[in-house]
Design a binder for these strands. Structure first.
Lengths: 271, 271
DNA sequence: ATCTGTGAAATCCTTCACAGCG
DNA sequence: CGCTGTGAAGGATTTCACAGAT
């Protein structure tokens, strides 16, 4: 067995679930007295909230846009607006990675950029394998935007014999049976699953076998993985259904507001 | 100008409000007059946490898989495991939509399925438009899996003159200038943006002009939208960067654990 | 005996608001 | 004076743990 169910998505949503750092010490839980003002032992890089990590990636993108336009410094207010958050949240997020701002002025775009890159581990390249070279797999393999050259695609896999050996985006397609071998040899860090749902779990197992610890899953299934493996999912159906919920909710709100208005007006009230 | 920055991504938003079920408006939307499952006090039917909505969609998928395999009832523990959450969370989530379980037994698969569908608004069809018919757009337009017949794709748009008029997945491509008109005429509920980042904001503005209130954004930009519009984003780059963060973190943990172990063993401690 | 439904506690995240630096 | 950095307050979400139904 040894399978643990976890998901990364959405998360999201928000939903983003943290890898449960479950330390089940026999005695009490760790006194999480995170010494605030006290400088913490450099040993322990303190946890950055999962939600903040996701936003740091957004800030990074916004910053790179600003750099292109020649911006040298930026205030928390500007950056926050461009990133779609409020400025208090942005400052709090940045405070998790250190203090790189100048009071009365703002942040230097390039300093902030490289600090975020450092925290996100973007200074090393993470090799990516894409499994499932259908419509979506093609899109992913060609995604010039596997962005900022931090995530080179270094292996492609499919079952279809007609695809094996064919180069896609300059890289030949291998058979999924070779996943464990090839991933291990090429030291693939991240596996992207773009297969039909029925194949996804088997593919995932082989990726794990090949030493892959991080999986990005586009297949509409919940993957079961061992504890040390991190899965994030991108799920079209679920995104649509969440939007659907909001449509329904808004429709109902509109109805009940209209009813209220009608009732009020028939009472001579002003709404 | 009245742009409000919000994003739908995997961040958590305040809990969404469900319609106040006040007195019966017109024939109205909330047919929650189910005699069998206990609805729940009208003034308590207020809000379903955003995070729970996302998971309800997951449960729905797991349930449909179970139904296919002939399952009639399911316990919270089984369903939770299959969905990758713990059972307390699952039960809490289900409690937001009513009480449809049987103590000592579990839930009936078909009852639960239709109740979740009802809450998510999947009883009505939501028409979808896809903008940007590149690799990804193709994948989306052909996605037989715009799943469970709840989300028919009813309009396609692109700028490329060579594409206009060409049918993709049985539907002709229109020019993006026609977005407002066509969306309004066909009563599109959800717009999916699969354009290059530079075009995304303009496309989004036109969708909103056409009366679209929900947007699913695949372009790597933060969209600015009016308040009444709901945006969710799917961002490959950000997903990869979040995974990258976990790679980095795990690497550090592994290092520090090794150091700790070394230190401990040189002290004769047991780890 | 088993499994749901749910208050209450614990945890995680966001927002406020202001001290303090440049 | 303007803007950052951050305790503290306020919410939201998750987990606990158990009463109660079958």
């Amino acid at each position: 067995m040894a399978r643990v169910q976890r998901d990364g998505g959405d998360d999201s949503a928000p939903t983003t679930e943290l890898p449960a750092v479950r330390d089940q010490g026999p005695p009490a839980v760790n006194g999480r007295a995170n010494g605030r003002g006290a400088p913490m032992p450099a040993d322990k890089v303190r946890a950055i909230p999962e939600a903040a990590v996701a936003r740091l990636a957004v800030y990074l993108r916004v910053l790179s846009g600003m750099a292109e336009q020649g911006a040298v410094t930026v205030s928390s207010e500007e950056l926050a607006t461009a990133a779609g958050v409020n400025s208090a949240k942005l400052r709090k997020d940045l405070s998790y990675i250190g203090t790189y701002g100048t009071r009365g002025v703002g942040y230097e775009v390039d300093v902030l950029t490289s600090e975020i890159e450092r925290v996100l581990g973007l200074t090393r390249q993470q090799k990516v394998a894409v499994v499932g070279i259908g419509n979506l797999g093609h899109a992913l393999a060609n995604y010039g935007g596997f962005p900022g050259r931090g995530f080179p695609v270094e292996a492609l896999f499919d079952v279809d014999p007609d695809l094996i050996g064919i180069p896609v985006g300059g890289l030949p397609v291998n058979h999924i049976d070779d996943i464990p071998d090839i991933c291990a040899k090429r030291k693939i860090a991240i596996g992207v699953i773009a297969t039909p749902p029925t194949a996804a779990q088997a593919v995932c197992d082989r990726l794990v076998e090949g030493g892959v610890h991080c999986v990005l899953n586009f297949a509409p299934v919940v993957l079961q993985v061992p504890e040390h493996v991190e899965v994030r999912k991108v799920d079209l159906a679920i995104e649509l259904q969440i939007l659907s919920f909001h449509v329904a909710r808004n429709a109902e709100q509109r109805v009940s507001r209209r009813t209220a208005a009608a009732r009020a007006s028939s009472n001579g009230e002003v709404v």
